[in-house]
Amino acid sequence: MIRERTLNGLVLVLLLAVPLWAMFNDQPFTITLATRAVIFALAAVGLNIALGLGGLVSLGHAAFFGIGGYAMGILAHHAQTYTPVMELPFLIEGTKSMPVIWLVAMVTSGIAAFLIGILSLRTAGVYFIMITLAFGQMFYFFSISWAAYGGEDGLLIYVRNDFPGLNTLVPINFFAICFTILCLVLLLNGLLARSPFGLALNAARQAPQRVQTVGLDPQRLKLVAFVISGVITGLAGALFADLNRFVSPTMFSWQMSGEIMIFIILGGNARLCGPVVGAVVFVMLEHFLGGLSEYWHIYLGALLLLVVFFARGGLVGLIAGREVAHD
């Protein structure tokens, strides 16, 4: 057994080493794959705050992923066609600047998470799973019929957006941006889990009544966690759209929500680096199992079952054992 912290370090170093190797060996597609894994990991880290810390099983996180994606798509679309996003009541112009886009993506997905959270947190357990799933579907259907932004066809952005001082079209540069964000968010996540808020949230998940008796509102704690979670997943959505230079309603689909959840459980629920390991393994499976058979989803399904049965703590749990505090 390796200590979990050592494992976390190893995972991140490896995740950094592979694209660097690929850069020197002229394998740009490997860098793209690694970037995809990093962005998926970020989305899952977001969900993990609601799911792992708050115990909120949300099957609708694709809503935030998609909102982030569309925030990028809409802003960049207006910037590339030189049209304003809206003129009344005040003028908003499109933009190609990543930091601005990220901010918009985070704010809009935060607002959406707040609204969805207020409604959904009136329920619990299975109701919560289903109501978040349904909200995700609502966004999906809306985006399909939203003709102004391409409907089902989605929006194509011709050139990747700009980041001050970096050429984002070079694969390794864009990878570096995403990887840095992931590390920052992981750091934040670690701090959050040990902060008074994180401890209270953890308690609210395990024993809401006790939290209430000390004067904290467990619902409010969960709502804050849900919003933070939505904001991070929204940011991941904006990055994902930029990776593909394309957004479409599939980002809102319920399969997407399911996949984000799979990353977490595959890697290890409530583990700091669980989502990262899960996303990396999933992208690798997608890549290599796909080569074996047209019907690779069968193998993926079987593998997931094995994880549920025999590796309850996910892959991280399998390697590092059950030593983590909040369990």
């Binding site: 357990g125 959840m261 799979i262 690779w296 069968i298 593998l303 997931l304 549920v308 309850r312």
Partner: peptide, 27 residues
Amino acid sequence: RLYATDHLDQVLATFALILIFSEGTRW
């Protein structure tokens, strides 16, 4: 095997079953 576990495992396992059934049927 899932009755005793939380909803999360149930969601994942039954999601896995969807993958298996869908592609199996197509096969």
